[in-house]
Design a protein around this nucleic acid. Structure first.
Lengths: 209, 209
DNA sequence: ACGCTACCGGACGCCATCGTCCGTTTAGCT
DNA sequence: AGCTAAACGGACGATGGCGTCCGGTAGCGT
């Protein structure tokens, strides 16, 4: 008797799974998450049923396809934390996060969405944010980051950076680079810094229409 | 003989037209422009045919519905230009523009879209931007605005502000207020100001899917 | 080489949105 | 009050996305 365990896929199934993930990554990066499931299946060269068999909901597909980007995000923050100069690390993270989001439109949407059934994705998101909070505190203690900075300002910036990508796909990377530099200007401690209006709590929202 | 001129509407037609515009304004502000035409007709309490008769394309409906916001936008910039303190006027415009866009999600999308057949809307957009450029130059000459500011930075900021609205409708106004204050921090001239990466040309895009 | 079964994808039915047609209603003028 | 044309909105067919079923294909283990 064989009784193949269901968690080992047949070779063609594994191949198709990779084709689907590749197609999903490409189209999510370019167009965002509001893409028909069939369109992804078409680009992957498989039937709709195959796509749905492998990824029953769009949420599973999105979180699996963007797991790499999420890892990259964590790596960026870790690298920033490792920098002996906290402010320098902070700035580097801002720049690289903006660049990452500029290159992948879908990742911004995913990062800002709450996936109820993707604990892994959400956990990584929390880890990255928490690490960033630690880095911010160190940069603040060093007197380089403005004292009224809060973590929600980072989320604010990520969301704002997403808005740039949304309207102008072509110039997005250049625009995001400049945006990151401006954000750093805004965040740095300065004698000329005016007090800011109160921060707003920006909770992730469930939407993948 | 009567021969009513076709450009005077019957009373019920005029009433319905206003109902449609009111419904469109409300739903555009809350949900953005990606709303089915039928949904607007439903909220206005009219049939789809009536909506299409009055506004053959979504473009005509959008530009007419948001004409008031566009006028408000112009008024804000004019008011800023009238301020004897150019930098103070500049800051006021930033704050009020962000607030305007925070309250009306559709307006941001419309402002960033190119409407080929709505010369009026586009002309107002150009006027507002041109005036803002003049105000920026004056604030720069006064030594308060950073010298490497370009008009595209303003567009960048508007797009970014739109990104905030997109993900978090509830906290949008508070978040936009803080965002505006941070933008002002970034834009002000400062000895600590680092050079910025090159600006990107951000052309309006035709999309109203 | 063969058979079992996991796997594939075309095809189906459902629903929402689209823009338009047409029979009915009603405003406005005499 | 009665007439006429403007205006109304329900209904239609087309399009496209959705998730699922099922007859055929091909990997894999013997």
């Amino acid at each position: 008797m064989t009784s193949r365990l269901p968690h080992t896929l047949r070779s063609d199934a594994r191949d198709n799974r990779e084709l689907i993930l590749d197609a999903a990554r490409a189209v999510f990066a370019a167009e965002g998450l509001n893409v028909p499931m069939r369109e992804i299946a078409r680009r992957a060269g498989v039937g709709p049923a195959t796509l749905y068999r492998r990824f029953p909901t769009k949420e599973t597909l999105v979180t699996e396809a963007l797991a790499g980007q999420m890892r990259a995000c964590r790596a960026i923050v870790d690298e920033g934390l490792a920098d002996p100069d906290a402010w320098h690390g902070f700035c580097l993270v801002i720049e690289r996060i903006c660049e990452l989001h500029a290159h992948d439109r879908g990742f911004t949407a995913a990062f800002m969405s709450a996936f109820p059934n993707a604990m892994d994705f959400a956990a990584n998101r929390e880890y990255a944010l928490r690490s960033m909070a630690r880095l911010a505190r160190r940069a603040m203690d060093a007197g380089r980051l403005r004292p009224d900075f809060v973590l929600d300002d980072l989320v604010l910036m990520i969301m704002a950076n997403g808005g740039i990508r949304a309207a102008s796909p072509a110039a997005a990377v250049a625009a995001s680079r400049r945006f990151a530099a401006l954000a750093i200007q805004a965040f740095q401690a300065s004698p000329k810094a005016s007090p800011l209006p109160p921060a707003a709590r920006l909770a992730p929202v469930t939407l993948i229409p």
